[in-house]
Simulated scan of single mutants.
Amino acid sequence: MADLEKTGKGVVVGTAAASVLAGVAGLSALFYASVIERNWFTLREESLDVLPPGQRPRRILHISDIHMTPAQGAKSKWLRELADLKPDLVVNTGDNLGHKQGLEPLLESLEPLLQFPGVFVPGSNDYYAPKFKNPAGYLFRTSGSRNRSPKSLPTEDMHQAFGRAGWVNLANRRQSVVLDRMRIDFSGVDDPHLGRDQYVGFPNGSVSQQGAPNVRIGVTHAPYQRVLDNFTNGDAHLILAGHTHGGQLRIPGYGALVSNSDLPTWRARGLTRWSNGPKSSWLNVSAGIGTSRFAPVRFACRPEAVLITVNPTSERGAPEGGK
């Protein structure tokens, strides 16, 4: 009987110790995800051969999902330092704001980058302030959010500030930008996650421009398949998107659990090829720089900006992205 009692106590003590260890491990993981990795910013670099032959390489800085709120000094400092890369072009794929008072710190953080040519599209959190939701809902939501709550963010003020700096708003627009005698033809859409997207195609160019060196880039916040298919059908060489946060919580060796869209989870971060019938384009999905202030965690998914060096092809022929 004494042995049984002793064994029983040992089981209880062992179970309690295991529970304590599990609790400590859980708290350690939460601390890491919410304090360390969330602010462990990184630069991912990619290289693509998509320019016409004879062109010099260009450096495109892709930023996304800043979700700026007041008092984010580490993020602000890192954003300002990105200007040291001296990109030829900045592409901002939306969700810049995370708080109704986030505009001033956002513009202060981006001020050095606003000195470079740039284009942008809005995301849902450029229109609507985030609000607290059951975090578990994120793991199962794949369709677009149709939030129709009052607009509570300074969207127009942000767009005007970007415009004064020379950045081009590509929301449901097409626009050509000339960089050192090479034309970049952009096609952009407003946020697909809110159902605001309208594909308008790529610029046609004038008759005299038809043979001019050019490259086609599609720009969207949320990488929904309908949008990617439209850009690819338009012979995009490259498509740039954000929104997914790379899954935000990833399982090492497996990857993202969700993409917060109809994009396959294995494409939630990184550079891949997107195909639609016989055509294909390069697709770069940024894991983003910030998070919602109501879910300030990242695990196995560091916040990132992406520097893409686009190089000339040895032979123009069929483009790397496009046909």
Rank of each mutant, 00 (worst) to 15 (best):
residue 186 F to K: 03
residue 156 E to N: 12
residue 320 E to Q: 13
residue 187 S to F: 05
residue 165 A to F: 02
residue 216 R to M: 02
residue 244 T to R: 04
residue 264 P to W: 10
residue 247 G to Y: 00
residue 226 R to L: 08
residue 63 I to R: 01
residue 308 I to K: 05
residue 181 R to C: 06
residue 12 V to N: 04
residue 320 E to H: 11
residue 287 A to D: 07
residue 278 P to V: 13
residue 269 R to M: 12
residue 285 V to W: 02
residue 5 E to N: 06
residue 242 G to P: 02
residue 109 S to Y: 08
residue 178 V to F: 09
residue 236 A to E: 05
residue 26 G to Q: 00
residue 174 R to L: 13
residue 167 W to I: 00
residue 52 P to H: 10
residue 29 A to I: 14
residue 236 A to K: 07
residue 136 A to S: 13
residue 300 A to E: 09
residue 293 R to Y: 10
residue 142 T to P: 05
residue 118 G to P: 08
residue 139 L to G: 10
residue 265 T to A: 11
residue 167 W to C: 01
residue 185 D to Q: 11
residue 232 T to E: 04
residue 89 L to E: 01
residue 59 R to E: 06
residue 262 D to F: 06
residue 53 P to W: 12
residue 261 S to P: 09
residue 107 L to D: 00
residue 55 Q to W: 03
residue 309 T to G: 00
residue 138 Y to W: 13
residue 251 I to E: 00
residue 88 D to G: 11
residue 181 R to A: 14
residue 169 N to K: 09
residue 90 V to F: 02
residue 311 N to P: 02
residue 311 N to E: 12
residue 88 D to E: 11
residue 67 H to T: 04
residue 281 S to M: 08
residue 113 L to V: 06
residue 154 P to V: 08
residue 183 R to C: 10
residue 296 P to E: 08
residue 149 S to W: 14
residue 61 L to E: 06
residue 278 P to T: 14
residue 219 V to P: 03
residue 166 G to S: 10
residue 28 S to Q: 11
residue 236 A to N: 02
residue 113 L to W: 06
residue 166 G to F: 10
residue 160 Q to N: 14
residue 269 R to D: 14
residue 59 R to D: 10
residue 183 R to F: 09
residue 211 G to R: 13
residue 158 M to K: 05
residue 71 A to Q: 14
residue 86 K to Y: 10
residue 108 E to A: 15
residue 140 F to K: 14
residue 209 Q to S: 14
residue 50 V to W: 07
residue 220 T to I: 14
residue 152 S to P: 01
residue 106 L to S: 02
residue 312 P to K: 03
residue 305 A to S: 11
residue 151 K to D: 03
residue 293 R to W: 03
residue 173 R to N: 11
residue 236 A to V: 05
residue 27 L to A: 15
